[in-house]
């Protein structure tokens, strides 16, 4: 029986495939969260609800220090990356093309193009010699590396926001006796605000998620949450890892929801 209403956009089989894709996409994640509340040691069978694994993870000193380290790095890196990206976006958008502009674009987007493992080993080589030469072993290397690969993620929403901004607003401010600095502070910056916050949040999530580069750059005893989990995975799988994963997942969903509300409100 043909559809009573002809719908040109319907293609046969597409809707079932899409729904199956969504189901398969979420099934593993839902199971992961479910297991984190499971009482049994075996992650395959449900043996009663418990918060035991969350408590265990919470009391684990290694997890505590890794969490603290992850947050320190993500916070520092997202601040540095957002600062650099904001300035760069101001310098590269809404102006006549100039010599070297492509170079700047390529430099900024380079972390998106180069495979992570390549950057990771290059940083290992470079930082290893600095570590030997200076003796400094601190978190600085991780923060620098994270800042660098977070820059393009912070840059994108800021740039998009700038390009969507009416150039005549700043012209109007100048016309109304505002100096260039006053124009920036009173008009450009407030209007750019949501873009900057969005950029910082994306940078934060990206830094928090990193495994490969962190593994190669970190000095001994500098585990972040993802590298700690990676280490645990080499041994027996425990629901403790599920609990940590679930918390990270919740954090990501939270930040993303905020990001969407933030960007949508200003459309």
């Amino acid at each position: 029986m043909a559809d009573r209403n002809f719908n040109a956009t319907r293609l046969p089989g597409f809707t079932p495939i899409a729904l199956i894709v969504f189901a398969l996409l979420y099934l593993p994640i839902v199971l992961l969260v479910a297991y984190s509340f499971s009482g049994g040691y075996s992650v395959s069978l449900f043996e009663g609800l418990t918060l035991e694994w969350y408590r265990k993870a919470w009391e684990n000193e290694a997890v505590q220090s890794a969490t603290l380290r992850s947050l320190t790095i993500a916070l520092s890196a997202s601040v540095i990356a957002t600062f650099c990206a904001t300035l760069a976006a101001l310098g590269t958008t809404r102006r006549k093309a100039f010599r070297g502009q492509t170079f700047i674009y390529v430099m900024i987007n380079q972390p998106l193009m180069v495979p992570e493992i390549v950057t990771a080993v290059a940083l290992l080589i470079f930082f290893a010699s600095i570590k030997v030469a200076t003796g400094y072993q601190g978190l600085g290397y991780l923060i620098a590396a994270h800042s660098a690969f977070c820059i393009p993620f912070a840059y994108l929403p800021i740039r998009a926001r700038l390009e969507g901004m009416d150039l005549s607003l700043e012209t109007a401010a100048a016309d109304l006796y505002a100096t260039p600095w006053q124009t920036f502070r009173r008009v450009t910056l407030p209007l750019l605000g949501p873009g900057i916050i969005a950029g910082a949040m994306l940078a934060f999530v990206i830094s928090l998620d990193d495994v490969v580069i962190t593994e190669f750059v970190k000095s001994g005893g500098q585990d972040t949450l993802p590298t700690y989990m990676m280490g645990q995975l080499r041994r027996v799988m425990t629901p403790e890892v599920n609990a940590i994963s679930s918390v990270l997942l919740a954090l990501t969903v939270l930040l993303l929801t905020a990001f969407f509300l933030l960007t949508r409100k200003n459309d």
Binding site: I80, L87, A88, G100, Q101, M107, V114, A148
Partner: peptide, 16 residues
């Protein structure tokens, strides 16, 4: 333009 891009370029050159 170059001046504003400098901090990003420095970080990226150093760590990427």
């Amino acid at each position: 333009s170059w001046l504003l891009s400098t901090p990003a370029l420095v970080v990226l050159t150093f760590a990427a």
